[in-house]
Nucleic acid binder design. Structure first.
Lengths: 104, 104
DNA sequence: CGGTAATTACGATGCTAATCGTAATATTGC
DNA sequence: GCAATATTACGATTAGCATCGTAATTACCG
C-alpha cells in the first residue's frame, strides 16, 4: 500500500491555479525535467536553487494538481499527473511540453 | 490598409511568456471576455479595475502574443490570436477556454 | 542508539508586478 | 479651434512571491 501526499482531486483542479503554477520559470523547468525522468525527488533534480526552494516549488506544483508525490521513507518522489491533466484540460500540458523555443 | 500595434511574430512567441501572461486572474478574465465578444477595446471591457490597468494588461497580452490590436482612430480594439496560438501551441488556448470551473 | 540524509517549516529579505491617479497624446465631431 | 473621448505614459504605492539560511522532523543504516 502506497502513501501519498495531499493533492487536489481531478474535479478540483483549477486551470487558473495550474497556469499560475506553470508561469514560474523554475517550476516550468521542474515540469520539463519530470517529463524526461518520469520521477524524481527534490535533491535529485539538478537546479540552480537551494533544495528548500525546490521543495517549495514542488509543493506549489502538487497543490495546483500538476504533480503527485509518493512518500517513500524520507524521500518524496514526484511525477507529472499526465493522465489527470489530459482528462481535465485536454491538450494543455502536452502542448506546453511539446513547445519549441522561440526562433527570435 | 489596416494599422496594427507591435506584436511578436508567430515564431517568436514563447510558451513561458504566454503562461506568465495567462497566469494573472485579471488577464485570464480579459481573455475569456475576448473569447466571447471577439473584439473589444479597453474601455468597453467590463472589469473591476481602472482603465489604465486594463490597458496595461492588454499590452502584456499583446507582447506575449496572446492578442493582436488594431489602431482605429483613438480606439485600440483587440482580439485573440486564436489561429496563431493554435498553430504555435496546438490545444493550449482552446483547452484553457474550454476549462470548466473546479467542482470543489 | 547515533549518524546521516531527505524534506519541510519558518522567518527574513529583496524584487517584481498589479493597481491607482494624474497628466499627456491623439482623434473625432461640432 | 474646441470639447469630448480613448488610450497611454509615468510615478508611487503596495502586495505577493521567489529565494535563502537555519532549524526541526523523520527515516534509514551501521
Amino acid at each position: 500500500m502506497q502513501t501519498w501526499m495531499g493533492q487536489p482531486d481531478l474535479d478540483e483542479i483549477d486551470v487558473a491555479t495550474v497556469l499560475q503554477a506553470l508561469a514560474d520559470p523554475m517550476r516550468l523547468r521542474i515540469v520539463r525535467l519530470l517529463d524526461q525522468v518520469e520521477e524524481s525527488t527534490c535533491t535529485a533534480l539538478d537546479l540552480p536553487v537551494k533544495v528548500s526552494t525546490v521543495s517549495h516549488h514542488v509543493n506549489v506544483l502538487r497543490h495546483s494538481g500538476v504533480v503527485s508525490t509518493r512518500i517513500e521513507g524520507t524521500a518524496r518522489p514526484s511525477r507529472l499527473r499526465r493522465d489527470d491533466l489530459e482528462r481535465r484540460f485536454p491538450g494543455l500540458l502536452s502542448s506546453i511540453l511539446a513547445a519549441t523555443p522561440p526562433k527570435a
